[in-house]
Design a protein around this nucleic acid. Structure first.
Lengths: 211, 211, 211, 211
DNA sequence: AATGAATGAGCATTCATTCAT
DNA sequence: GATGAATGAATGCTCATTCAT
């Protein structure tokens, strides 16, 4: 039923999807739905929490490698995010695009996740500044710009036909941001980092499935 | 009535705002509303068209200056966008954040405007490539990244308390993008371009009011 | 529609009567119902207020006569109450019997009306005590007993077949209470007072119809 | 579980109390409930029967005394009723106040009990008439008035704060009715009868607990 | 005996839209 | 041009009851 809800929310949007739509398609009764969730919003919250958790799990995994250099870390983090959005594309559409609009209660949750992601990136930048790799005045805005550039590609991909894998956009996105922050890099290494990350995650995921 | 609709959509969201909300607040009857618009969606479309038109008008004005250099053009374009979003902040929230979610019909329109904006930026990049200022492989993705970075700041600003003017973010956004595309610039000049643009638009707007 | 609601509430009870029952029988749409009342409870409140108001109007009228003696006043008051319950028998059933059970919000209103009626009777008793007509220690409980004896007859009548007019019970009820409070009376006069009151009210009502 | 149901019906009312409310609070499963009762109504019927039976038991006990005079019998009967209502106050509220409203099936049962109580009182009155103690024309209405006056005090007590014991109202209620039927009595004796009855029942109940 | 997940008919309420005046 | 009462399909949610285990 949860999978059905993800599918329908992604396809028709949260508001346009009725409880009956979900239950009929999932082959259960309305009562059963309300046995597991108190209301429609609670289902959405659950989906969102799962979404945020998965995003976290993959990012954590990608950064777990030892002797992680600045550039490599950045590449792995971004590649991992793209891989996850691709994996969760059905529900991602609802989470990233529709969700902000329909419920002030939920809006808080979304804002919180978004800020956590921003803080994460900001933290990376602050570290880079401290080690003299780069000079950024307003790290908060910098994080926003960095995340925003990635999200714009993800959203465009979600709203278009998704012909090619989202992860193929990792390279231009990363190069764009490395340049933006005037970080020095070797093009071939960037590509290697990305490929390795995707491969690592695929293997990890194949054996663990969100554990 | 149109202004009331903008206000209420921005405050409560499109779905949460009823026709009666709008007409009561605007001091007209429901019947009168349906004399001017065939349905709720048409009102939104109208608002959206107006929004897109205004965005266009200000961008056009900002780029009308003679002897416009590459960097100056970029600065003026971005500053103009920010100025407009700040000016139209009430409805901008609905247009940028909520709209994508609630109707496939609107979605097309929104996508169209977004693509036009992207194409505009892409066009700039293609020109830059042609004159050898910069080397960009995938100009489409580049435009997406460039726009996305700006939008992320706008959205954050719209959803937060909006204490400082949105235009104050012009400088970090522009620097971020100029670096990202490895364009050479003089920091003082960038700031000057921005200040001049804002000043020009203010004057223009003071006399013309969206004409 | 209001009359339909009164009829159905009286026949099936408040809870068992759906909005659709009312609207279908009244030949209007559900939407129309909600145009006039915000919810089911509000309709009930309205019915109750009307009920209480009418009870008040008739009592006031019955006691408006000049040179009203103690016994006559008591007789007229009780006769007037019975006449009103008979007149409003459909809704009275809901108000007196069902209402106390289904809504704490409404319960307050009901309690208030009930207390006002009690206070009215209590006030009569206090006056009687002052003029030495009777000696009652606990006038509050006395009023309760007096009202309760009448209500029990009304309720029984409402729940049974209602073959004879409720007003025919006025005489035994009044005699019962006059005795209970050891008031001296002439049997024939009591009967005359009752007959006169009913006749007065019938005439008044025929011309004024709840004003 | 039965006690839980009594408690919840008394607190929230029959309609507002769900089967789940009862089973959860009683620490049993819904299935178990339906093993003992076929449906919600049957539980209520059971509660009602128990309630009526207890009322009967105490009344019977109170009247079992030998050499019972007319006045003493009346006093003992009324005092016993009040004692029982006080004892069963939780469920009494539902039985006396709410029950009449929600189901024609219950209504019959309630009416039956009420009539039995009335007949009992009527029987007393008929005896009094036969022995010339009193002259009552319509004994049925008389019984109604007599019972009604007591019920009104009970209901008021149930709906208010219940600060003082219900049995303290026995004296005014009885005096009221003795006067109403023009029965001669000695005030001190009435008070003695009441006190004795309460004391007898307390002792009986202490050893037998509804047997 | 006991469990509790599953059922689904049924209800109050909303709101974009219509149309007679 | 303007009004606003009327419409009714559609939705989220409840809860007594069932039944496989």
């Amino acid at each position: 039923m949860i999978h059905t809800a993800e599918y329908l929310f992604g396809k028709q949007g949260y508001t346009q999807t009725t409880i009956k739509d979900i239950t009929t398609r999932a082959g259960i009764s309305v009562g059963t739905f309300y046995f597991y969730f108190n209301n429609k919003g609670e289902l959405f919250q659950h989906l969102y929490d799962e979404f945020a958790k998965k995003l976290q799990i993959i990012s954590d995994f990608a950064l777990k490698k030892s002797d992680l250099g600045v550039i490599e870390g950045f590449c792995r983090y971004k590649a991992a995010e793209l891989w996850t959005f691709q994996q969760l594309q059905e529900i991602a559409k609802t989470m990233l695009i529709e969700a902000p609009g329909f419920d002030p209660l939920f809006e808080k949750k979304r804002a919180h996740t978004f800020h956590k992601s921003n803080e994460r990136v900001e933290h990376i930048f602050k570290n880079l500044c401290k080690h003299g790799h780069v000079h950024i005045q307003d790290t908060k805005t910098a994080a926003l710009l960095c995340n925003g550039s990635l999200y714009s590609v993800v959203m465009e991909w979600l709203q278009q036909n998704r012909t090619q894998p989202l992860t193929e956009y990792a390279y231009p996105i990363i190069i764009f941001n490395l340049n933006a922050f005037q970080l020095k890099y070797v093009e071939e290494m960037v590509q290697t980092y990305i490929t390795e990350t995707i491969s690592d995650i695929d293997t990890f995921f194949h054996f663990n499935k969100w554990v």
